[in-house]
Structures are given as C-alpha cells and as structure tokens.
Amino acid sequence: MAMANEPVSADSLALKTLKKKRTGKQIAKSLLKHFVLCLVGLCFLGPFAYLLQTSVKSIEDIFAVPFVWWPEKLYWENYSNAVQAIPFLRYTWNTLFVALLCVLGELIAAPLTAYGLARIPFKGRNVIFLVMMGTIMLPMQSTMVPMYVLYNKLGMVNSYWPLVLPAFFGAAYYIFLLRQFFMGIPQEITESAKIDGASEFRIYSQMILPLSRPALFTVGLLVFLNTWKDYQMPLIYLNEPIKWTLSVGLKAFIGEYDVEWGMLMAAAALFTIPVIVLYFFVQKVFIQGITMTGTK
C-alpha cells in the first residue's frame, strides 16, 4: 500500500509545476473543451428546458406554431394548481419511501452476490451467473401474470411488498454491474489479507466495499432513479389511491379527451427536481473516488 503513495505525491508535485507554466496552447485547449461541452450541453439541456418552459406556458402557447420561445405571460399558477389537484406530498412521500427501501435492499444484497460471483472461484458460479442473466432475458410481459398470481397468493397485492421486497434479494442488472467492478480490482490487494487469515466477509466489507464507492453510489443512484420513475409496478400492485406513487399520480392530469398540459408539465417538473438534486451530489462522489483509488 505504501508503494502506491509515492506516485501520488509525485503527481501532485508535477501538477504544481504544470500550473505555474500554463502555456497559451493549454489555455486554447481548455477553451476548446469548454466550447465542445457547452455546445453539446445545450442540446442536452433542451428537454429539461422545454419541460420547464412548457410548465409555465398557457395551453395556447404550448402548441403554438411557430414555437413560442418566450411566452408573454408566465403561468406560475400551474404549479400551485398541480400540487393542489393531487395529494402531491403524500405521493412524494410514498415514492421516496419505496425508492429508499429499494436502494437499501439493493445495496445490501447486490454487492454480496456480486462478490460471490466475482471473487470466489467456487464450482457452479458460472451456472448461477448464467441463470441470473437468463432471468432478465425473458420479457416481463410473459411473466407478469404468474408474478401477480404469486404475490396474490402471498397476500401482498395492494401493499408495497411487491415493489420493495425483490430489491432485498438483488436484481440481476446491478449484480452484473458490481461483478464487473469487483473483477477489476487487482487480486494483490486482497491476497495479503487472505494470507493473514482475514475472513472472506472481512475482506469484502473492509477492503472491497470501500474500494468500490463510485460503483456503489452508481448502483444506489440508478436504483433510486428507476424506482422513482417506475409506473407499471405501482399501477399493477397498488389499489388504493392513497398508496400511489408520483408516476401513477401524474396520470391524474391526462384525461381521455382532455389533457391538463400546463399542470401536467408543472407536476412533471416537480417530479424531476428531486432526482436532479440527488444526482448532483452523487456525481461529486466520483471526484472523491479518484483520490481514494490513488491512495490504495
């Protein structure tokens, strides 16, 4: 471990000297980078900017041809109306509750399983991996009904169990993702600990997990995001409106012949913001990840 420390200090030293003599060429290069990032960034800002813009537009402006770039009057009341039209706080809480439980469950189960598949060369692990991958290759439309039958037999219909419980057993997608990360960690790192007689679980919890923080945060983020956005599962399994999640609740604005576009867009914007905030903080972890891997 000490061995890896030197390059880092050397690196920071090198950085310092580099900073002193930033040449014109480097400045131009950095400008170019910013230019490219800004340009592509604008394209990517589009959908969200569009969402925000439509959320304060009148129905006339939303569909006007040609496109209305800046509406004359802003309909902020779309927001207050939307929040009042559906039990917004209640749905937000429900969604948060389900999403956080799923993150918790997935972060307990997925890394364990992934570790077993990645770093314990036991007989049959390839079979397990194969079956696991197989489970997600079958389209869910064909297993949806038997799945419902099962949950109904377990008495779990109209409860959060069907949405949350599977996470505590790990989803193939995240297990596979973490397996790839764990397989990338050099054996030398754990070898000495093994020789010292550390238990497998100790190696897992005290060496591998800390080393995989970016991966674990990524999994947490993706689980949260996917649960947050999921529509089908809550719709199928939750019967009482008071239990609904936001994605189901958003449907309230979509009538058969009439759509409350302004309110729908305002609610959709509110729906999006918590995940953006969450993402902003999670991606910061990636930067911390660098220094950590550097000192290992």
Partner: peptide, 23 residues
C-alpha cells in the same frame, strides 16, 4: 395450479397496511 387461486383473493378487504394484507 395457476388457475385455482380464487379462495385466496381478497382485493377489497386487504386494504390495511402491508403487514395484514393477507387477512
């Protein structure tokens, strides 16, 4: 055995919290 599950169905009744959903 996938089709004879009506005796277990209690959709309207199981309106309580998740834990007593099977009543």
């Amino acid at each position: 055995g996938s089709n004879d599950n009506e005796e277990n169905a209690s959709p309207g009744a199981s309106s309580g919290s998740a834990t007593n959903a099977s009543s």
